[in-house]
Computed example of a mutant assay.
Amino acid sequence: MKLFLTGYMGSGKSTVAEQLSQLLNLAYIEMDHEIERMEELTIPEIFEHFGEEYFRRKETELLKNTAEECIISTGGGVILKEENRRLLKKGVVIYLNASWDTICERLVNDQTRPLWNGNDDNKKEHFTGRLPLYKETADIVIDVDNKKPEVIAKQIVARLNSHH
């Protein structure tokens, strides 16, 4: 079983993937960290030196080359490319649905995300623009507001058991 965790930056994908990995005894890949490891650059450095499109190509390569049995914590923008959405459909897509308020609260002091460092109007537009793609791609939607990662992971396992 290949599980893809999707959702906007700050929705908890990486933390929940780690919890799920323990519950399901499956390896997990944190997509951004894996791209940083492969490129030997941080995400901000990749954006600065090569641009967002280059980074998006790296996401696609990673989706094409991941093992069949694993959990993948995707980057928040992975759903932007149609090819990626098709690749995600080869596994079970779990959308971690966080409200705008939750995202803002979690990212208030975050300086590591290139697409978060704009003005507030652009951020909200960016967020709402992606929502339909997350929903359309998802097999399972989990609301994450005011929930601990362990609780979210257990909800996912329960939904997976009823999903199959």
Score class of each variant (00 low, 15 high):
Asn65Trp: 04
Phe127Met: 01
Glu39His: 11
Met38Thr: 06
Lys135Pro: 05
Glu83Leu: 11
Phe55Trp: 02
Phe47Leu: 08
Lys58Asp: 05
Gly129Ile: 09
Ile43His: 03
Arg37Lys: 14
Arg56Ile: 06
Glu40Asp: 13
Val93Ser: 07
Ile46Val: 07
Ile79Gln: 03
Lys89Ile: 04
Thr137Lys: 13
Glu136Asn: 14
Ser73Trp: 03
Val93Tyr: 03
Glu39Ser: 13
Glu69Arg: 14
Ser99Tyr: 02
Thr66Asp: 00
Trp100Ser: 08
Glu52Lys: 09
Glu40Gln: 15
Ala138Tyr: 08
Leu63Val: 01
Thr66Lys: 12
Gln111Cys: 10
Arg37Leu: 12
Thr102Leu: 13
Tyr54Asn: 08
Glu82Gly: 04
Glu68Pro: 12
Arg37Met: 13
Tyr95Thr: 03
Gly129His: 05
Met38Trp: 07
Ser99Pro: 02
Gly129Arg: 08
Glu48Gln: 14
Trp100Tyr: 10
Asp121Tyr: 09
Thr137Leu: 11
Leu115Ala: 06
Val78Arg: 09
Asn122Tyr: 12
Asn122Leu: 14
Thr74Ala: 05
Tyr134Val: 08
Thr42Leu: 12
Asn97Glu: 15
Gly51Leu: 09
Glu48Ser: 12
Lys135Ile: 11
Thr66Ser: 11
Ala138Ser: 10
Pro132Gly: 04
Glu59Gly: 05
His126Tyr: 13
Ile94Asp: 00
Ala67Glu: 13
Lys58Cys: 05
Thr42Arg: 10
Gly75Ile: 08
Ile72Trp: 00
Glu105His: 13
Asn122Thr: 08
Ile46Gln: 04
His49Leu: 15
Ala138Asp: 01
